[in-house]
Nucleic acid binder design. Structure first.
Lengths: 123, 123
DNA sequence: GAGGAAATGAAAATTGTTGGCAAAAGTAAA
DNA sequence: TTTACTTTTGCCAACAATTTTCATTTCCTC
C-alpha cells in the first residue's frame, strides 16, 4: 500500500509552488528547501510514481531534456524561444484534431512544441 | 573549415537509404556497412554537425528516446501508438499556425506528437 | 607532394537514471 | 501507545547515454 511521505509531499509542493515545467535538478534543489535530506534517487522514484498516478507528466525539451509538469492544468502547448532558451506555456489549442491523422488512427492526445522567438526577445 | 569525410558522407547516406527516424545505434550499425571503422563518437559528433547544418533534426520518442530524421521531407507529424509502440509519420498539418500562440510570439516552426491507437491495433 | 588544421578512433570521463541494501519512517492492529 | 510489518529513504554502486581527451590519421590548400 502506498504511504504518504514527507519527501513526496515536498515534491508535490514544489510543483504547486512553481507553475511551470521543472527538471529533475530543479525539483531536487527546491525540494531540499522543504526537506533538507532529500535525495536525488528519491526524486526520480517519486517522479515516476507521480507520473504513474497521473499527477505529473513528462515532456521533452529539445535541449534541456526531460521536464516534468503537473497534469490537469488545462490543455496547453509549449513554446521554446531559441534566443533565451526558455519554455513558455501557451494556453489553448489551435489543432484541428479531427483532421490531425488519417482515417483509422484513433487520436487520444497530442503534444505540440512551438519554436521561435518570444515577445521579449523579438523586441 | 569544415571538411568532407567519408564518415559523414556515410552517415548522410544512411539517412537517404532509410526514410524514417533513426536512433544512434541504427545509424552506427548501418553506417558500419559503408565504413567499417565507423566509431560511435564520430556518429554523435556528426549528428550534431548535421543538426547544426539544419540537415537533420532530433525528435524524442516517448520510449525509444532520441531519434534523428532528415529535415525538409515535407511537413509531417508523428503518431505514437501505445498498443504496438510504433511511430508513424503523418503527412500534412492540421495546425492553425497563426492562432497557435498569442501576439508577440514569433512562431517559426512546430512539432506535433499525436498519441493514440493506430489502424491495425484499433482493428 | 608537404604542411597544417580538422576529423577520427579508442578510451576515459561526464551526465542522467536506475537498482541493491541496510536503516528509517509510515500504517495498521494490538 | 507500542508493536510488528512493510514501504521508503539515503547512500552508493551500477548502468546507459553522451561528451571529451588526445594521439593519430585524413583532408585540403599551396
Amino acid at each position: 500500500m502506498r504511504r504518504n511521505t514527507t519527501q513526496r509531499t515536498a515534491i508535490e509542493q514544489v510543483f504547486s509552488q512553481h507553475e511551470r515545467p521543472l527538471g529533475v535538478d530543479e525539483v531536487l534543489t527546491y525540494g531540499r528547501k522543504l526537506v533538507e535530506s532529500l535525495n536525488q534517487a528519491t526524486v526520480y522514484r517519486n517522479l515516476k510514481i507521480l507520473i504513474d498516478d497521473g499527477w505529473l507528466k513528462r515532456i521533452f525539451h529539445p535541449s534541456l531534456g526531460a521536464l516534468y509538469e503537473r497534469t490537469g492544468k488545462g490543455h496547453h502547448h509549449h513554446f521554446y524561444c531559441h534566443e533565451c532558451h526558455r519554455v513558455f506555456e501557451i494556453p489553448g489549442c489551435a489543432l484541428r484534431e479531427d483532421e490531425a491523422a488519417p482515417d483509422g488512427f484513433v487520436v487520444e492526445d497530442h503534444e505540440i512544441f512551438l519554436f521561435g522567438v518570444c515577445p521579449s526577445c523579438a523586441g
